[in-house]
Design a binder for these strands. Sequence first.
DNA 1: TCACCTAAACAGA
DNA 2: TCTGTTTAGGTGA
Length: 588
Amino acid sequence: MMMKNGGMDAHQVDIDSEFEPHSRSRSCTWPLPSGAPAPVVAAPACMSGAALDVAGQLRKAKSSRRNAWGNLSYADLITRAIESTPEKRLTLSQIYDWMVRFVPYFKDKGDSNSSAGWKNSIRHNLSLHSRFIRVQNEGTGKSSWWMLNPEGGKMGKGPRRRAASIDNGNRYLKTKGRISRKRAGAMGLGRGQGQRAGPAMQDSPEHGSPAGKGGVGMGGEEYDTWTDLHSRTSSSASTLSGCLSPILAEAEADEPEEGGLSCSASPRLYPSPSSTRSPALGTGGHCPTVELPQLTDLAGAISLDESGYPQPQQIKCNGYPYVPAPKAEVSYCGPMYGQPSMGMLRHHTLMETIQENKPVSFQRPMRGYSENNALQSLLTGGPSYCNKETVHDHNPRSSQSHMHNHNPHNPMHSGPHPQALSPRVSTDILQPYSLKTSNHYGPRPHLPTSPSLPPNPAGVMDVPQDPCRLASAPQPRHQPYPGAHHQGMTDSWHGYYHNNHQPGNTGYQGQQHNSHSRMAANLEMENAPNSLDCDVDSILLNDFMDTESMDFNFDGSLSQGMGMGMGMSLGAFACPPPAHSNQSWVPG
DNA sequence: TCACCTAAACAGA
DNA sequence: TCTGTTTAGGTGA
């Protein structure tokens, strides 16, 4: 598994020596090579051009916060690793590989003997930081996909997950849980027992907390609630909850909703997109009801996606998609992430919570659409993503860098047809869906834009990824596409892991093949919004707010039939398509 | 106080 | 054994 730097780029090699971490004084930092690009990743491409600039920025930034800017922390490294992939997601083992491969410091630490410590730190960081989200990886076994939190989580200084969780009402519970745990331990409970109990308690409050794996000893309502939720979580419907951001989860903690939101085991665990589908299936939801909402979401989401992930069933405008999928591959949430998804719908509260905590408001996006007539826009202009998808077959690689680009202005307006696209667009299109990740991140208020992570899309990330935003406000996204810079790295890594890892999964390629299908689906979706035009707000408020559990089910058929189409880029939104297609959504 | 890092305990798969 | 979560302690700014 650990590649020992075999594929390292020459550039990287050059700087290797400089990557030794500092004595670990404060944070173990990986010193940037003085002249070298900060990015550990040091991709070949990165080294030149932008990468260098980045290094400069980092150095400048150093003055303020070292790790955040000048040095890369584990979190930064992980972020980069994730960003370096087309899909913007990696499994833990892939992250390890990436570290070994691209970070000189770890180059020789891939063996089990010397890897325990840093791997532990990697895991710790993944779990701890809200900027990372874990997505179920049904396709590959146990190891989950780790992705960047679309919402952005907190970069650098951002509050740690732990801290964040505490902020909410759950705090109390959480604390309590911990205490319990300790107490249990003190009482002589075995960890096994005590812990479970403890964690459960802990988690219960958070719902999301994986830790809560079902503790047994929990007592109290909390526990019940948790259990409840938890079990629900298992259900497809509940999966939605999984989508919830940690914060959300917390928010809900107080009131477990049947809607189930929450449940994902961990606050951050998002069901893979694939799973997303299932929710629909599971719930047996029927499109009709749900559709509108979905559409709405779609509208919002549409701009996002581009990733073309195979099965993103969800939609999300900002939401996190969540739906457990029966198995899909990998879809992750990239796109899904959006929060919106079902979770949103169901729980208005959640949304609120999110808003509170996070800069990005999910609702807003939707609203934005309606207000801005985004829907119409969609209708009128093809969504850019469609284009992308369409094209992306050709060159999966290039995409990364472009993610944001695709719609510099308004994603929605991009012409539906590739031809219509401007040259630039075309280029973007070429990129594989995955690359466009930025979209995935959709609503990211603040992506890890930290300057510190230049090469990566991070730079890109800072871009307003929020699809909604895009829709509502044309953004001149110009980021030069950092991707370009680091594309080299990305590519290499991308190739690396694609070839070596991802045993079959992800359907990434497959997706490409389906671009046409997707397009169709997308188009449909686009149209849908019109019909939906109705009133997103109303719907949201009335329907969604309704505690009632909505079954967002995407038709199973959809998933299957279109599954792929949808899955892909918009994919997430895919669900609706089938139904839509039949429907006369399209105005006119 | 904050942000990081490291170590470690634990649990589930 | 790997993965994932959480707790705790330590350090530097």
